[in-house]
Amino acid sequence: MFTTFFFWYCALVILGCGLLAISLRNPVHSVLSVLVLFFHLAGLYLLLQAEFLAAVQVIVYAGAILVLYLFVLFLINLKEELKLDAFVPGVKLGRGIAVGLFVLLLWALPSFTAGQHGQWTSKLIEENGHVQTLGLEIFTQYLLPFEIAGVILLMALIGGLVLAAKIDRPADNKTASVPEASGQQMEKHP
């Protein structure tokens, strides 16, 4: 009973915060509503008995990533919105497609049946502890995806630096100061 109530509470708050995040005009307010969203997402992890993931969710996403977003917002100090041409002519078409997708999911999802279970039962996880179980799986079975994710993060870092560096490098000029600075940061990463 309580878990059902708790699930619906979290789900509705997540939905509401998600809508607020994209509809609020002030970017700081948007980030704050995403913060609330992340806390309730952590609540969902708790419901699934994944305490470690819930803690990681709060520490990494709510604690680190959102603070980074806020820093970025304060640093670039956007006074007015940037506007791009819409891809789809008219907002109504986009909304129509979104509603259509929603109805489609409502129609299809009741027939969802859960598939086979893996080797880890919740009792076994309880016995071993979440961290150890997660570590075992990530560093054996899922080592390759884990490493690819690492490379993706490295790419994000290099990409961010390339986009943030102000100048296009001329042919045989001495290296400009900005790429030098980016180089030092890059070494710190791994």
Binding site: V151, K166, D168
Partner: peptide, 30 residues
Amino acid sequence: IMAAAVDLMTIYLGLELMALPIYVLVGMQK
């Protein structure tokens, strides 16, 4: 990785690893 992937996880990660550098490459010439 995308060409060789036979698992949903590697397919997705390969896709992201391909896409991320290209986003940057598109915007690189400022």
